[in-house]
Amino acid sequence: MNKRRVSKGRLPVALVLPAVVGLAFLLVPLVGLLARTQWADLPSRLFSAEVGEALQLSLVCASVATVVCVVLGVPLAWLLARGDLPGRRFIRALVTVPLVLPPVVGGVALLLVLGRRGPVGELLDGWFGISLPFTTAGVVVAEAFVAMPFLVISVEGALRAADHRLEEAAATLGASRWLTFRRVTLPSVMPGVVAGTVLCWARALGEFGATITFAGNFPGKTTTMPLAVYLALESDPQAAIVLSVVLLTVSVAVLASLRERWVAG
């Protein structure tokens, strides 16, 4: 084969120009962020008390929220994919609402229900003395609320794509539905579960709107990385840049880990 390029005519300017502008629009801010970073004092700032605190809080809250999402979301995905529920399509539509809802609205909704005066919050307070708003636990709740749909949609998609006849084979071998789920279904959709978990964790880590609305902004307690970035921008721009670079790094790492499944092709 020769390497001669088959001429299909010139690329139309009407397409190329907006495309290049669009690409620049997406990349220039990130490049700018990296350009403004003072790399020399990055390590010292990274390990400073407030950055470390926010970073640690973010990692812990996002991880706990992800665990909550996996424990509740995988069964929910199974029910949607396999449960033969009446109104299954409607329930699936409801699950995706938090996906498109402005996170601030989600935070307000959580506050109304789980707040001390809210119907559920009142019960939690009265029976267990638990109050979620403006606590670290509240951060986890806000993050889980926003991130869970990512996991459910991803796992449900994997379940639908999986060969359900394998489950039939397991049933004819004497396996109960629970055993079939654990030993046959779950292992066969594991890549989907992993992808959903990573996506869910990344979404939880970046959560801002619902968190600040529901959990407030108390350093050491509810100030996660995105909130710290927002705060620091006014008082200490260099700290904001460092925090942003950390979040950017995490995002790129997530993207790289999902590359096989999401970006390839």
Partner: peptide, 21 residues
């Protein structure tokens, strides 16, 4: 009687072996 409670053995056309085991 649900399949798991019948004393059957089924060999499926494309075998349906569990690939992760």
């Amino acid at each position: 009687l649900a399949p798991q409670r019948r004393t059957v053995g089924v060999m499926f056309q494309d075998y349906l072996l569990f690939d992760h085991m």
